[in-house]
Nucleic acid binder design. Structure first.
Length: 805
DNA sequence: AGCACGCCGACT
DNA sequence: GTCGGCGTGCTC
């Protein structure tokens, strides 16, 4: 019987990033298993923390006194063998703490909350009892200890045994219950009771008769009262008379339960789709793991290929995971999958409450759901016996997590496919260069859907040179051609979609007299004007202040709003076309839960003529009546100092073009740009992914960028700019001799937005083809810099970063 | 992270 | 002398 548990404690630091040995109390020795959460004492004080049992052993190499596990949180492991292995791999490959990885893989409610409490003891003097506790059994330490003087006074009291410090480890997970109703008497007793009720008490009679039909089963009070038309008050009376008893029924919070989902039938596949499905399905029960790149233009029916492949995996008794970018996880998408697989589907995305996510997670773990649809973190869904993993829109940068652990869902998906020996399908109309290059080399198997369903032609694309436009006309967000086209759709009662590249295109405040621009006091960027709240906001740190009426610098009244946010575009368009019904979709109008879906439904039902929005409208929406797509500023992203700028622009333009003319009506796309000759725009005009891929690969080869090189970004930040810079130069000297001569180190450079939240950021980028020592070197780096972290220097490592700014 | 320990300047 | 500031090391 295992007596010792190796526990990963919830203290995310470099020094505690390893298991600690604990004694398992004999009463629990048969119960504790790897993957369970426990509460353990940690440190010299009375601190208690949550931890994960990694291993159960008979012995330990640690030769000090062992402490014992305080409490076992779970009845069954929450991390299975696969998840424990994945945790270790994830921590090593992203240079993050194992505990952080374990927590990332689980629903947020399973993370412990800690409270430090003060409790009176037998020795507590009466004066202290009234002064501190006011008759309460315990008080929150941090609420009382507001000044250093009070803290030391409390510590003195504690040393004297006059108060007790206690750490509470709280489990946030709550199971939702409904009130259930169950007969408490036998049938004859209930029948006999009918005679005892006062004449005219029709509801009580109905209650008794209803109870007799239950057959000893429990049903919810809500159903009971609806079924037998008795009120809650009558049920309470029945409870008092002892006819029935109320129980708690555990239920899942199901966010889609009320939605009417129509079952859908598999569609007839065209020849290409059939080939793709056959290949994928054939790989499901192969011992080797195959990764497919499913390359298909918008409207080529990728989703149907996914659904039929999933169906085949389910038919083999396996489970399936389907990842989609957060932004395209729309109600339409969910309906499509639920329509095909019904209750077997669990959905995981950021729009769910934490309780809903927890319940979906439990449904998956209990094998009540075999298909999981979700965004990035759904890649950790606790599916056993995986038969297929699908990653739609695999090029989307939202698959990469921005903060620790900085993982890419694609890498996790590939790891899990190796573990389960199941295929992965990476789907996209515009695959990332990394993926497409791997398909070229034969690492991934390429499947192509070149035809659009029903052989619909791709929309015509017109490029509008805004430089010429500016010379000929007054300054406007709209070219003549686009305005004419918009008016034309309005006349024909067809719909239009207008997209703004938001980056670098928000409205700011500028003084016409002195040129002053209102900037964030904490960050290195200008504040953005928000007309809805009438404030200036910083998009990086959230700082908010009033809109200035006079210039803070020269006190001139000539202070004006500049730039073009979606709000301004909407305003200008409404002026130009007073009759048009316009819907605006951006971060402001979709912040509230469900408003995103509401706006789309409104547009879909024809209640508006024009939809204006940011990137979020480029993906996954499919409205048959949209025949015009306009991109107002195609090139704002092109100017960014990021080697992926062209790739992103091409992907975005191609994707948004796919929104035009999806039904019988042909579509037209207008792209307004100041760089009409840029290759990303030229290739997008002709829907030419192949051409773009070849050209961009050439550019990457020239520049020495991925996929020809691997990259790692190291960031340092400090409140003091000089310290951040100095440490980075020291780091450079430290790194150089440890890496091979072929490796290229770029920087250090200040990040393009050098200051965020009052911290100054510097970065180094390592480019390499082969670097066997990299993992060791960077882990050593983290160990060696942890002393400096305490002094305020923060070091971050991002493997294969997607954003270089 | 959070705590104790140890070393220094400033005060009763 | 001692209180409390902060830098340092350790947590099974």
């Amino acid at each position: 019987m295992a007596q010792i548990a190796q526990v990963l404690v919830d203290v995310p630091t470099m020094q505690t990033n390893r298991p600690y040995s604990y004694q398992i109390p004999s009463a629990w020795q048969s119960q504790v298993q790897p993957g369970m959460r426990v509460v353990v004492p940690f440190g010299r004080g009375k601190r208690r923390v949550q931890g994960f049992v990694l291993k159960c052993d008979d012995a330990t190499t640690y030769d000090g006194d062992l402490k014992a596990i305080d409490a076992v949180v779970d009845l069954a492991p929450v991390l299975n063998t696969e998840a424990l292995k994945l945790t270790a791999w994830l921590a090593a490959s992203t240079f993050s703490f194992q505990i952080t990885c374990a927590q990332t893989m689980l629903p947020a409610v399973m993370r412990a909350k800690y409270q430090k409490l003060l409790r009176p003891t037998a020795e507590t003097p009466a004066a202290v009892a009234t002064e501190i506790f006011h008759g309460q059994p315990s008080v929150d330490f941090d609420q009382i200890a507001t000044t250093p003087a009070i803290v030391s006074q409390l510590l003195r009291l504690q040393a004297a045994g006059e108060v007790d410090v206690y750490y509470q480890v709280k489990n946030q997970a709550r199971h939702k219950t409904l009130v259930g109703v169950k007969a408490a008497q036998s049938l004859p007793e209930l029948a006999a009771a009918e005679a005892t009720v006062r004449t005219g008490a029709a509801k009580q009679l109905a209650l008794l008769q209803g109870l007799q039909t239950l057959n000893g089963e429990t049903i919810t009070q809500r159903d009971f009262s609806a079924c037998f038309d008795v009120s809650e008050a009558v049920i309470r009376t029945g409870e008092q008379k002892g006819w029935l008893e109320k129980t708690a029924i555990e239920v899942y919070r199901d966010p889609y339960a009320t939605a009417n989902i129509k079952p859908t039938q598999p569609l007839k596949l065209n020849a290409e789709q059939q080939v793709a499905v056959d290949q994928i399905v054939a790989a499901v029960d192969q011992p080797a793991t195959t990764t497919f790149l499913l390359e298909g233009v918008t409207g080529s029916g990728k989703t149907e290929v996914y659904l039929q492949s999933i169906a085949a995996a389910l038919a083999q008794g396996k489970t399936a995971l389907m990842l989609v970018p957060e932004i395209s996880l729309t109600p339409q998408m969910v309906q499509r999958v639920k329509g095909r697989f019904g209750k077997a589907v669990a959905v995981l995305h950021s729009g769910l409450s934490s309780g809903e996510k927890y319940d979906e997670w439990r449904r998956i773990r209990r094998h009540e759901a075999q298909v999981v649809v979700g965004a990035r973190s759904a890649v950790f869904a606790p599916l056993d016996d995986l038969g297929l993993i699908i990653m739609d829109e695999e090029h989307e940068s939202s698959y990469k997590q921005d903060d620790a652990p900085r993982y890419h869902a694609r890498q996790v998906a590939l790891w899990r496919s190796q573990y389960h020996h199941c295929p992965v399908v990476l789907g996209s109309a515009t695959p990332s260069l990394e993926t497409r290059a791997r398909a070229e080399k034969g690492v991934y198997q390429r499947l192509v859907l070149a035809d659009r369903v029903n052989n619909r032609p791709l929309p015509a694309v017109s490029i509008i040179d805004m430089k010429k436009e500016m010379q000929q006309h007054a300054e406007s967000n709209f070219s003549r051609a686009l305005l004419v086209a918009l008016q034309d759709r309005l006349d024909r009662h067809e719909q239009s979609v207008l997209m703004l590249n938001r980056r670098g295109y928000s409205s700011f405040v500028l003084c016409r007299d002195c040129g002053f621009v209102l900037k964030c006091p904490n960050c290195d960027i200008s504040l953005t004007l928000h007309m809805d709240t009438h404030t200036m906001k910083c998009h990086y740190c959230g700082h908010e202040e009033a809109i200035p009426r006079v210039c803070p610098n020269c006190h001139s009244r000539q202070i004006r709003y500049y730039g073009t946010g979606t709000e301004k575009v909407e305003e200008e368009l409404q002026d130009l076309m007073p009759d048009a019904r316009i819907i605006r979709m951006d971060n402001d109008t979709t912040r509230k839960k469900g408003s995103h879906a509401k706006l789309l439904t409104k547009f879909g039902s024809g209640e508006a003529d024009i939809l204006i929005g940011t990137q979020m409208i480029a993906k996954g929406l499919d409205f048959p009546n949209v025949t015009l797509v306009g991109v107002l500023n195609a090139d704002t992203a092109l100017g960014l100092p990021d080697f992926r700028a062209s790739e992103r622009t091409f992907q975005l333009l191609t994707q948004v073009s796919g929104r035009a003319g999806r039904a019988e009506k042909t579509g037209h796309v207008y792209i307004q740009t100041f760089n009409p000759d840029h290759y990303a725009i030229r290739f997008a005009k002709h829907h030419d992914y192949e051409g773009f891929f070849k050209y961009e690969m050439h550019m990457r080869h020239q520049g020495g960028y991925p996929p020809y090189y691997f990259t790692v970004q190291i960031t340092a930040s400090d409140l003091d700019e000089a310290i951040a810079a100095k440490r980075m130069y020291q780091l450079l000297q430290w790194l150089k001799p440890r890496l091979t001569p072929n490796t290229i180190i770029l920087g250090p450079t200040p990040k393009p937005i050098a200051r965020v939240n009052r911290r100054y950021y510097y970065q180094i980028v390592i480019k390499y083809k082969q670097e066997p020592n990299l993992e060791n070197t960077l882990t050593t780096l983290l160990h060696e810099t942890q002393a400096q972290q305490r002094q305020g220097l923060q070091i971050g490592i991002d493997v294969e970063p997607l954003h270089f700014m």
